[in-house]
């Protein structure tokens, strides 16, 4: 029981990091960033390159990866993002397809530079584990969790305490009103793209310490990230954390208490994505709000 809970918590941290990048870009620009998967994949390869070339520990490497991918995201915004910024309340299918194209180009770039061979990062502690409350946890998973929590705290402080964060939240809530009160929406969009891409890079670099990867890597995590932000109601910060917990709990619970083979786990989360989209398009928070209203009426 405790082991399932702990593993759920560890997985949720990573999942939330993965999903926040997607949620920020969606919130500010109303764009579904399919290139997120490609950026995560590049993050994994960036960590790999830093590790194999310069012997930089992948977790120390995050200090390089995060700003690098922030710049990459801003450039991506300048190249394509700016042309496809959604004006309406719902994202356009054109933006989805353009970013899909970007994903393919990134994938091909990785094939050319690193070939299609499976790569992995093996550090001194990859196989080590520590005991927490009587449960053996892999050292990389614990480090990933800590780094995730660290980056999420950073994001939360940024969003809550700074002018920039307030501007991001303002544009997310009402783009027109934010424009009217003097927020430079173009610049906020560029920064949101940078932040989203930085988080994707961080998530990818951390995933690389947990598992082997190829240029095709990222698709299943993209779908999981979608699943999380849909569960979380697309734009709320606590919602995303909640969605990440639900998905991680489902996966770990299935593995621990049922005989569903691990190879089918992904199918379960993809099916959950479908169910979540159809059943509660406003996310779990809206579901709770609905229950509360119903309870209040009684």
């Amino acid at each position: 029981m405790i082991s399932v809970l702990l593993n759920t918590l560890l997985a949720a941290g990573l999942y939330a990091t993965m999903a926040y990048g997607l949620a920020i870009i969606y919130g500010v620009m109303r764009i579904i960033n399919l290139a997120h998967a490609g950026v995560m994949m590049l993050g994994a390869y960036a960590a790999y390159a830093l590790f194999s070339r310069f012997g930089l520990d992948p977790f120390v490497g995050l200090v390089v990866v995060a700003p690098l991918f922030f710049v990459f995201g801003v450039l991506m915004y300048a190249a394509v993002g700016r042309r496809i910024a959604g004006a309406g309340a719902t994202p356009s299918i054109e933006s989805l397809l353009v970013l899909f194209g970007v994903w393919l180009v990134l994938q091909n770039f990785a094939y050319v530079v690193w070939t299609g061979d499976t790569q992995s990062i093996l550090t001194g502690y990859t196989m080590k584990s520590i005991k927490v409350a009587g449960v053996r946890l892999g050292v990389p998973s614990v480090l990933v969790f800590l780094a995730s929590v660290g980056s999420l705290i950073f994001l939360n402080v940024l969003l809550k305490r700074t002018y920039l964060g307030k501007a991001i939240r303002a544009v997310t809530q009402n783009r027109d009103a934010a424009l009217l009160s003097g927020v430079n929406a173009g610049r906020i969009s560029a920064i949101a793209f940078g932040l989203g891409s930085a988080f994707a890079g961080i998530a990818g670099a951390m995933l690389a310490t947990l598992m082997a990867f190829t240029p095709d890597f990222g698709r299943s995590f993209l779908l999981k990230a979608f699943c999380i932000i849909v569960l979380g109601g697309m734009e709320s910060v606590t919602g995303v954390a909640l969605g990440a917990l639900v998905l991680a709990a489902l996966e770990n619970g299935l593995a621990a208490y049922t005989s569903v083979p691990t190879s089918l786990q992904d199918a379960v989360s993809f099916a959950l994505l479908f169910i979540a989209l159809v059943a509660f398009p406003q996310g779990l928070p809206s579901l709770f709000a609905r229950f509360e209203r119903r309870a209040a009426i009684r």
């Binding site: 989805l96 779908l223 989209l277």
Partner: peptide, 20 residues
């Protein structure tokens, strides 16, 4: 589902079927 949400849902279904 409207627009891109429908698109995302179809990726989810197709991938779930492939894995299954």
């Amino acid at each position: 589902l409207r627009g891109p949400y429908f698109t995302i849902a179809t990726i989810g279904v197709a991938e779930a079927i492939r894995v299954t």
